[in-house]
Amino acid sequence: MNDFVLQTVTQILMPFIQVYGIFVVLNGHLSPGGGFAGGTILGASIILYALTVDVKAAEGIYPDERAEMVESASVLVFVLLGLISLMMGRNFLTNIGIFPSPETGTLLTGGFIMPVTLAIGAKVASTVITLFTHLFEEKKS
C-alpha cells in the first residue's frame, strides 16, 4: 500500500503502540494485561508496519532465524525456570521461597512471574509475526 498519510501515521504510531505493548507486558502482575495481551500488541505493531509500509522491511526487522531462536528460547526459559526449583529440592515450578520477591506492588515482585511473563510476551509476539509473514509470504525455507 502506498498511501502517504497511512504510512506516516503508522510510523508515528509505531513507537507508541510498542511502548504500550511493553507496558502491558511489564505491568501484567500489577494491572490487567500480561504476556498474552502485551505480546499480541507488540506483534500487531510490527504487522501494522509490514502491511502499510513494507513487508520486506518488516522481515528485515524480524528475520526467520531470529524468530526460530526466540520461539525456542522463550519456552526453554519457562521450562528451565521450573527446573531450577526442582534442583533446589522443591516441586516443579515452585515460585515463592526459591525466587526472591521484594515488596508488594513493585515491578520486580512476585519471584519468577516477571521472567515468565517476559518469556510469554516474547513468545506470543514472535509467534504472531511469524504466523503472519509465513501465511502472507510463504518463503522458501
Binding site: E68, S72, V79, L86, F92
Partner: peptide
Amino acid sequence: NHLPIVVICTSLIGAFASPVLGKG
C-alpha cells in the same frame, strides 16, 4: 518423586531445542 515431571520436561526440552539444533 519428581520423575514424572522430569520425563515430561525432557521430552519438551528436546522438542523445543530440535528446530534450532536441526537447522543445517
